[in-house]
Design a protein around this nucleic acid. Structure first.
Length: 482
RNA sequence: GGCGGUAUCGUCUAGGGGACCAGGACACAGCCCUCUCAAGGCUGGAACACGGGUUCGAAUCCCGUUACCGCUACCA
């Protein structure tokens, strides 16, 4: 069987992480099987669908590198087929016209609920006299088309849950075509999935109760059933369905936070799927290699941003140099800290800086923030670093002066040769290396944390290093008493 | 309420009758490394929801209970 799967979001918001994970699983399944991964935009709810959301979905999927095959299908464009299918069902006697108005239905539902009873459509319109139905329909009386749910029971073998069974008596006769002639979700989905020859319908758990309705529709339409797979939901830290109050829920949010697409995919894949053993950090190729539907999990999981950050750091460290180089250069330019031409002209220097920082950063944004001292000319002193490391002004001044003097005559300016020189200075001053190096770090970077100080000196170069030490010596805290 | 789904450390999970007084990872704490911060290494606390079965033996299979989640629209 040719594998054809689809990701079918409705364009009513941004690409949600839950949706992204569903797309990922579909993509993985298709690529692994050598099948097609299709994209369908379910825009039948005209009131809520927006072009901006559609664009956000494209952008999100593209960013995650979840490329789809064939042209995007817009559900709204299939209106005529949906109507044809609904009428075919009507003609075949599998559906009937319902003249109950939405207001009547709401009222009946309200009274049933007030009595503590479950509302059930009583099929009153299915009992209408045939001639009367024809007459009212011909007269143009507004009506919906309802699918008549047969008796018995409906079950399927779900790829993640195993056999799931529903008593049909639990399923209300569902409206498949609104009184305005537009289709209802369940009909549109089934009609489109049949037309697109979808072999596996893989979606969120929240569709489990739609599945028996859809299976009944497939049968009534005399179409072959696809295989179903229902993935568990993703919840927020409080165990509730992920929503805006949990902070960032759109993949675009994470992109702007400096999260790498491969880290996002890796993290999302592990929510609802496991390669087995203790494997965690995987790049795209490894994930595809390891992927198997056997690893689908049934339990809803909680989205933990802290673990995402850690995972992003792991990917930052392992990513191929060329890729992280381009990524960081782009981010630095976007932050306005340097020009692309400048960075690329001294690509060895830029590359060295990135290598020193990638292991210390968790996100691209974090890396850019840490790169600032090497890119801008004026040092911004962190107050805490100054008070802590330059506690004793005169003593610090003495040390920094000694360091500057030693450094001023240094010929080869690289980490390896600078190391013994500065340690010698510390020793000559009768202090441990840290007593000299820490204040020096503040002088050079303005911060209390940075790559190894000798690497920092090399990165800054002699001229800038000496200038920064001199600048520090003019700082109120270190300047000689007047 | 009804129906459906799910249940292993705080979180993500391994495990699928004996290899498990339950392993890994994140987070947290401590130590090591060390010029700081990371990274890395080591150590620690921390879980099979509960009750019944089945079995020589159950985290693993069955039933029930509980909890949580989802659905219950002329939304998707």
């Amino acid at each position: 069987m040719t594998v054809r799967v689809r990701f079918a979001p409705s364009p009513t918001g941004y690409l949600h992480v839950g949706g992204a994970r569903t797309a990922l699983f579909n993509w993985l399944f298709a690529r692994k099987a050598g099948g097609q991964f299709l994209l369908r935009i379910e825009d039948t709810d005209k009131a809520r669908s927006t072009d901006a959301s559609t664009r956000a979905i494209f952008e999100g999927l593209t960013w995650l590198d979840l490329t789809w095959d064939e042209d995007v299908v817009y559900q709204g464009a299939n209106l005529e087929r949906h109507q044809r299918d609904a009428h075919a069902l009507l003609d075949a006697g599998a559906a009937y016209r319902c003249f109950c108005t939405a207001a009547e239905l709401d009222a009946r539902r309200a009274t049933a609920e007030a009595r503590g009873e479950a509302f059930r459509y009583d099929r009153r319109c299915d009992r209408l006299d045939r001639a009367e139905v024809e007459r009212r329909a011909a007269a143009g009386e507004p009506h919906t088309i309802r699918f008549r749910v047969p008796g018995g029971t409906t079950s399927w073998d779900d790829m993640v849950h195993g056999t799931i069974t529903f008593p049909n008596a639990e399923i209300d006769d569902l409206v498949i075509l609104r009184s305005d002639g537009t289709p209802i979700y369940n009909l549109a989905v089934v009609s489109d999935d049949i037309a697109m020859r979808i072999s596996h319908v893989m979606r969120g758990d929240d569709h489990i109760s739609n599945t028996p309705k859809q299976i009944l529709l497939y049968r009534a339409l005399d179409a072959a059933l696809p295989v179903f797979a229902h993935f568990p939901m993703i919840h927020g830290l409080d165990g509730k369905k992920l929503s805006k109050r949990h902070g960032a829920t759109a993949v675009g949010d994470y992109r702007h936070l400096g999260i790498l697409p491969e880290a996002m995919c890796n993290f999302l894949a592990l929510l609802g799927w496991s390669p087995g053993h203790d494997i965690e950090v995987m790049n795209r190729a490894e994930m595809l290699e390891l992927f198997s539907p056997d690893g689908f999990l049934r339990k809803a999981s909680i989205f933990d941003p802290a673990k995402l950050d850690w995972m992003n750091g792991q990917h930052l460290m392992r990513m191929p140099f060329d890729r992280i180089f381009d990524l960081v250069v782009g981010a630095i330019v976007a932050a306005g800290l340097a020009t692309e031409a400048d960075l690329r002209a001294r690509d060895r220097w830029t590359g060295r800086m990135i290598e020193l920082l990638r292991v210390r950063a968790r996100t691209v944004d974090d890396l850019v923030r840490q790169a600032r001292p090497y890119l801008v000319d004026t040092v911004e002193y962190e107050p805490d670093a100054v008070t802590k490391q330059w506690k004793d002004g005169p003593a610090t001044r003495t040390l920094l002066v000694a360091a500057r003097d030693a450094l001023a005559t240094q010929a080869p300016w690289d980490a390896a040769t600078l190391d013994p020189v500065l340690r010698g200075v510390a020793q000559a001053q009768g202090v441990g290396a840290g007593k000299l190096l820490q204040p020096l770090r503040v002088a050079l970077t303005g911060t209390a944390a940075s790559p190894g100080i000798f690497d920092v000196l090399e990165l800054l170069g002699r001229e800038r290093s000496l200038a920064r030490i001199d600048a520090a010596l003019r700082h109120p805290r270190l300047a000689p008493a007047a």
